[in-house]
């Protein structure tokens, strides 16, 4: 998604389409938590302590939140999120309202991790985390197909070994 004032180039590759399903599932789980909380508040807190306009506001907020996280955010995220491994660097773009581009040169990679959360396993996805000496210089490529993630991680680890300089 190119915008007129994008500061830098966007990475070339998009994520697996299964990521949309995963984000929707996350949204549904979040919405269920909201439903539980709102139901608990509405039934347990007496009318006198929480006047009815506030009750309606709470319900409206929960419905709106669920609507956005289930039906809008996954698709926006899918359009925004991108990644790329070039000859010299790993490059990602994440976020949906605030966008974050992160670039890490392969020569400065310290560790490459592949993690698979419970939900990710259901959708056959995995996250590649590329760590550097800086606590802020961590690149996460979210939600790649598991076999792609493993290949990328192996490739990065091997190339980091070859070109590694001081790494700090």
């Amino acid at each position: 998604m190119s915008t007129p004032a994008a500061p830098v180039r966007d990475p070339a590759w998009s994520l697996s389409r299964s990521a949309i399903g995963l984000w929707v599932a996350e949204g549904v789980i979040g919405a269920l938590v909201w439903v539980a909380v709102v139901t608990a508040v509405l039934t347990l807190v007496p009318e006198s302590a929480l006047p009815s306009p506030l009750r309606w506001a709470l319900v409206a907020f929960a419905v709106l939140e669920a609507g956005v996280t289930i039906s809008i955010r996954p698709w926006v995220r899918y359009r925004v999120h991108r990644w790329e491994v070039t000859g010299e660097a790993v490059y990602t773009l994440t976020g949906w309202l605030t966008r974050t581009w992160t670039l890490v040169p392969i020569s400065r990679i310290q560790t490459v991790d592949v993690t698979r959360g419970v939900l990710q396993q259901l959708f056959g996805l995995a996250t590649v985390a590329v760590l550097t000496a800086s606590s802020q210089g961590t690149v996460r490529v979210l939600h790649l197909e598991a076999d792609v993630a493993q290949r990328v991680a192996d490739d990065l680890a091997r190339r980091a070994e070859l070109v590694r300089d001081e790494a700090t």
């Binding site: 004032a5 500061p7 830098v8 974050t100 040169p105 400065r108 800086s134 802020q136 700090t168």
Partner: peptide
Amino acid sequence: VGWQVRQSVLQRRAGLATVVACVGA
């Protein structure tokens, strides 16, 4: 050891961005 460029919706409209130099120190 890395660059991070951040841009919020408001920054995008103002034509600005925040650049973080990632350093292992």
